[in-house]
Amino acid sequence: MDHITASCIIADHVVYTNGKAVFESPSAGIQDFLLSVYQQTGVQYPKFYKMDNGSKLGWLACEWLLREGFRPADYRPEEVAIVLSNANASLDTDYKYYATVKEIPSPAVFVYTLPNIMMGEISIRHHFKGENAFFIFESFNAAFLAQYVHGLIESGSARACICGWVDVLGEEYKAALFLVEKTAGATDPPAGATPLSAENINNLFQITTRHE
């Protein structure tokens, strides 16, 4: 059996973990907001400053997600998978990179013109070496995600998976990450965990609209 054992949503200037708003910053722009969320983590991670907005958002959501009971000692690095998705790939950074081409093309920006780079940043931070996959959908596809992640865990390709949605374009952004873990006995899931299903993922994803 696999369960969603934690979630983190970052949208509309609010960070939610496991369904509760845990941080809010009425900052004007995305840049300031991401910085305030970073500062709130209390982590010193200089690499954060060189990331593009997509990687910053994914990295931050993962940082908050893993504080909700994830025990790294339970897993070998290759047992933790990351499966992410979004609508706009790396378009936000594609524009920023192409703006440098007229003067001197910037390798430091170019490297972020691939959506999977955020999985590289998360892997480096947490030393995860397992399965990676990045998918593009017009809108959040909970059914596909639940199916794919269930398959990874069922086949033994992973024992835990960080999965979800990280999308940034200009000032618009939303991250929704879920920690899915293979739980030993179906009769005894961890407190607060919900079974992995499209419906349960969608309910967690929709949290921001429920609060409005």
Partner: peptide
């Protein structure tokens, strides 16, 4: 088939 990540460097 399988996929892995180096967890070392992005480029």
């Amino acid at each position: 088939g399988a996929v892995s990540n180096d967890a070392n460097h992005i480029s």
